[in-house]
Design a protein around this nucleic acid. Structure first.
Length: 213
DNA sequence: AACCGACTCAACCGCGAGAAT
DNA sequence: GATTCTCGCGGTTGAGTCGGT
């Protein structure tokens, strides 16, 4: 279910991570932490870009990560927090220990979005229904209408926030040249990586290999 | 059994913010 | 103050899986 591994034109490995790469990354971070993601793949002997390493660690390898099987409580929390914060997945993730923002985002798009939309459609129907009956002008129904519209306006507000974000397409200069992109820049200069990249033989000897266990 | 569309989720990409120089 | 570097976030992609026909 993942992209097949491949090397881009600069020799940076992309696509699915192998077990060996995972182990190498874990071993390095456990020993040295990750003070500098950009340098990490270089010193850890990985043909990845720093960004890729960070993502792999944050979403998959770091300790205490829960995987799959969201509880009802968690689902409810995500719904509530999404209503409150919108697509601020990192903010939502803070309230759900063991879940990464990426995982929550995926879960939202595959599960909860539907539920949320369903609820919203019901709400709109309810409002419309209330609106037509309120035209008979009874005081009680007026109250209901007021509360309904105030609820829908919060949804409108949320949508407006999202639209605003979508509309704000930054006028970004097209970066010519890969060298300007430090995140994807490979760390394979020097003579580190040959065509036949082999993380195991990266270091000349076991003594030099910081990952040798 | 074979096909196909929907779903899932790991990984990629573009961009902005803040820190460092 | 300007530029460069590093990090993190959110949107999107794409290939494997699943379920229906």
């Amino acid at each position: 279910m993942v992209r097949a591994p491949y090397f881009d034109e600069n020799g940076t490995k992309k696509g699915a991570w192998s077990m060996e790469e995972d182990q190498r990354l874990i071993a390095y971070i456990e020993r040295h932490g990750h003070p500098n993601w950009r340098q990490l793949p270089k010193v850890a002997g990985l043909a990845r870009c720093g960004k890729s390493c960070r993502l792999r660690w944050m979403n998959y390898l770091r300790p205490n990560l829960k995987r799959g099987n969201y509880t009802q409580k968690e689902e409810q929390m995500i719904m509530e927090l999404h209503k409150k914060h919108g697509n601020k997945w990192s903010l939502i993730a803070e309230s759900l220990p063991g879940r990464s923002d990426n995982e929550i985002k995926n879960y939202w798009h595959s599960h909860l979005k539907k539920i949320s939309r369903h609820n919203e459609t019901n709400l709109i129907k309810e409002i419309q229904k209330t609106k037509t009956t309120s035209e008979d002008v009874s005081d009680d129904s007026h109250h209901i209408l007021e509360s309904s519209t105030s609820m829908s306006s919060s949804h409108v507000e949320l949508n407006m926030t999202l639209y605003r974000k979508e509309d704000s397409v930054a006028s970004w200069e097209i970066w010519d040249g890969f060298s300007n992109n430090f995140w994807t820049e490979p760390f394979i200069s020097e003579n580190a990586l040959g065509q036949d990249y082999s993380p195991v033989s990266w270091y000349g000897s076991e003594a030099e290999d910081p990952f040798f266990i």
